[in-house]
Amino acid sequence: MSLGQYAKRERTLITGACRPSLPRFVKMRHDAGRGRWILLAPERVFNPDDIAVAVLQKCDGERSVADIAGILADEYKAPLDLILNDIIDMLQDLADKGVLNAGELSQQ
């Protein structure tokens, strides 16, 4: 069998146009025992804060990062640019850790 078919060659950069989603193997659930949301991933358990939870719950592969920023800017009555930058930073961090499908436009 030849290798390379599934190899990732380049780092994915998150932009406002990406339509991110959690991969099949990353699970966000509420952990009742610990009273918090958790993100389960290979050999990792992440503890997203309230904003991160709000963002990740909207990462359905349909909405773009810009759409999500728009919704949250409304909800939190905050400047859109600021929210968008924060969200991009957070999602980039998760993408670099391999726990987010970026949903780049070029791949759709």
């Binding site: 025992g33 610990r34 050999e43 992440f46 503890n47 997203p48 850790k97």
Partner: peptide
Amino acid sequence: NEVTPVEATAVSAVDPSCARAPVG
């Protein structure tokens, strides 16, 4: 070291000290 703590800003690793149950 099965569960490696990860540093992150908004999404940080679970602090196990506040949990009575094992993570893994």
